[in-house]
């Protein structure tokens, strides 16, 4: 009878576990967790900004792109260091609660009401509230994000301003998905939907949706950067968060934001706002 020996794979396993262990040992002080919205990632803006920040400062950024609702919840729990979000009411609640410091204006673009070219509810050219009323009156299908994102929060505010409660209606549907996927669903179902302009422009050529209502003051989409308060959450990387926030409002980056997308989409996706009054 042959004596059992260690089979080959146990050595392989030991070696690979060692490798995995080495990989995990990234010093936390050099890592910044950025919780942000899907729109900044899906538009490609972060792909341009993050590598530059990492090169300039030596920090490693972990970008978690989720809805603004989840991003703000991560801030409240101290699970992120810095937030780049666009849900003003939820942001103010976060600041009031004392979980964030140094909320600063970064940029804006606007929300647009999109729909099929046929425009069955005849909303083209109407102001936001009137357009939503027309959609509700016509029982035209409206595709909502339904995910507590900044866009969803804005949409709920618009319905409330129009004096309507669409939840539960057959024509009011929720995807629970990010902006890009919701646009795809809306296009496929010939539905109306609300989108930020950046994501729409980035995806426009693949969709059959048209801008039907825009330019209303109620449709402004404002992005703020917020540092998570280290007093409440001691494990937060404060210097890293500060460095990233400073980076976003710096002159050079604001210029990049201003020019971002002109080459690819023919028009800018975001307008820099740092230092301006709210």
């Amino acid at each position: 009878m042959r004596t059992p020996r260690f089979p080959g794979w146990t050595w392989l396993l030991a070696a690979s576990l060692a490798c995995a262990g080495l990989q995990a040992g990234q010093p936390a002080a050099k890592t910044v967790i950025l919780a942000t919205t899907t729109s900044t990632q899906d538009s490609g803006l972060l792909d341009e900004l993050i590598p530059r920040f990492e090169k300039q400062t030596g920090y490693v950024v972990k970008t978690i792109a989720v809805g603004s609702g989840q991003a703000i919840a991560m801030g409240k729990k101290g699970e992120a260091d810095v937030l780049l979000v666009h849900s003003p009411d939820a942001e103010k609640a976060l600041m009031a609660e004392g979980s964030g410091v140094n909320r600063r204006l970064v940029m804006h673009n606007d929300f647009i009401l999109l729909g099929p070219a046929g425009d069955p509810a005849r909303v083209r050219g109407k102001a936001a509230a009137a357009a939503l009323q027309a959609i509700a009156a016509g029982h035209a299908v409206f595709m909502s994000r339904g995910d507590n994102s900044g866009t969803h929060a804005q949409e709920k505010k618009l319905w409330a301003a129009a004096g309507l409660k669409p939840e539960g209606q057959a024509w009011y549907q929720q995807t629970g998905l990010g902006m890009g996927q919701t646009l795809a669903v809306a296009a496929e179902k010939r539905a109306y939907t609300l989108s930020d302009r950046g994501t729409y422009l980035a995806l426009r050529k693949k969709l059959g949706l048209e801008i039907l209502s825009e330019g209303d003051a109620a449709l402004l989409n404002v992005y703020h950067v917020i540092e998570v308060d280290p007093a409440r959450h001691p494990r937060v990387n404060t210097p890293g968060a500060r460095a990233f926030a400073d980076f976003l409002v710096s002159k050079a980056v604001q210029t990049t934001i201003k020019e971002f997308g002109i080459g690819t989409f023919g028009s800018p996706l975001f307008f820099p706002d740092a230092g301006r009054p709210e």
Binding site: Q23, Q26, I64, G78, E79, H233, R235
Partner: peptide, 17 residues
């Protein structure tokens, strides 16, 4: 694995580990 979770001290959330 959350920072403030029971295994937060490992600091491996958002890593391949």
């Amino acid at each position: 694995l959350w920072r403030n979770g029971p295994l937060g001290f490992l600091e491996i959330l958002y890593t391949p580990s």
